[in-house]
Nucleic acid binder design. Structure first.
Lengths: 184, 184
DNA sequence: GATTAAATCGAGGGCACCCTCGACTTCGTT
DNA sequence: AACGAAGTCGAGGGTGCCCTCGATTTAATC
């Protein structure tokens, strides 16, 4: 990940970092449609500076989200490392939704709550692809019902994103009900 | 249901009806936050007239939604008339979500997507109360798992409202998974 | 410390929606 | 048909967010 084309001036690099930190916080707390002016203020920087660094909201999101989405890869790796495929499947889902609960921005992205840049979409696609392997493994082991498809994951994520926002205390309970329905 | 205080002038009554019709359509299609100016235009009436009839958005919603929410009562009555309690339970849920799929405004209200007036909240409360009886009956018959509580319905409705919006074609499939998880 | 390119600032113009209010029109009545 | 009350109209002011751009400041270099 080379720093790109031109090296930034020292103050610019500092401000960029402050912006990224502020945005990570704001997007995580309030979702991907958090007001940019608020982010600029909370970074101690003017709105003009924000736009100097990130010309569009998408560019801003692109600078933050892919890393968070990539966390799904670790989750998937751990899930596949589980000796029991069903256990791997459930722990993957649990981890996924726990991430969503902590980061509303990530939740917005995974649930397609609003239009996303190609870069973020690609990251999501990669995440879902890993998930497909976990699902297939659990199906092959005969523990996950045969008619559950990888494509069912996206609607599930979207539904859970809403449930998590609505009642952050009880989403595990409802997930458990659902998982009981998914057992072969 | 007396017409209230003063009788409306003929043209006013006509406009009121056109506004209600337009709002029913707009709220149903676009949700309870549909722009009021658009509703006025599609009713062939100016925005000022809209506000003359309904001083706030809440008043407008109150004039429309309670009737739609009351449709849940019929659904509940039918469900309780089913000889098989489990069948009653599932047909109630299916009917409820079918209504949500047809009316995004109703869906917004039931899922508490935005702040609601006391009148609408009360209507929702009444609806959920009926649902509680259906749930209890299904539990007593031993077909619904004992640890499913009436309070679990609200989060379920909220999650389904999202799922229905996201993939209106497949919500029944996912509901079926969930119901399998709810069987005793 | 003077030069200059880079970076910052924030007022301001746009947009979409909200809601109000005084001028005008229409209805219903005498 | 003419009067007054009831109803309608829509321009206009308010808000919150978007994004731009010329004036200004600051870091890096000589």
């Amino acid at each position: 990940m080379a720093t790109g084309s031109k090296p930034l001036r020292a103050d610019a690099a500092r401000n960029r970092d402050k912006l990224l930190a502020a945005a990570t916080r704001a997007f995580g707390e309030h979702g991907l449609d958090a007001p940019l002016e608020q982010i600029a203020r909370s970074a101690g920087v003017s709105i003009g500076t924000l736009y100097a660094h990130f010309p569009t909201r998408d560019a801003f999101v692109d600078a933050i989200l892919p890393a968070q989405i990539a966390a799904l890869d670790d989750l998937a790796t751990n899930a596949l490392a589980e000796p029991d495929p069903w256990q791997g499947f459930t722990s993957f889902l649990d981890g996924l939704f726990a991430l969503q609960a902590k980061d509303h921005g990530l939740s917005d992205a995974l649930a397609r709550r609003l239009p996303l840049s190609p870069a973020v979409l690609e990251a999501c696609r990669a995440g879902f692809e890993h998930a497909a392997r976990i699902i297939d493994r659990a199906k092959e082991s005969g523990q996950l019902r045969a008619d559950f498809e990888p494509a069912d994951l996206a609607p599930l994520v979207s539904a859970m994103s809403q449930l998590i926002r609505e009642s952050p205390e009880t989403w595990r309970r409802h997930l458990a009900f659902f998982l009981d329905g998914l057992r072969a």
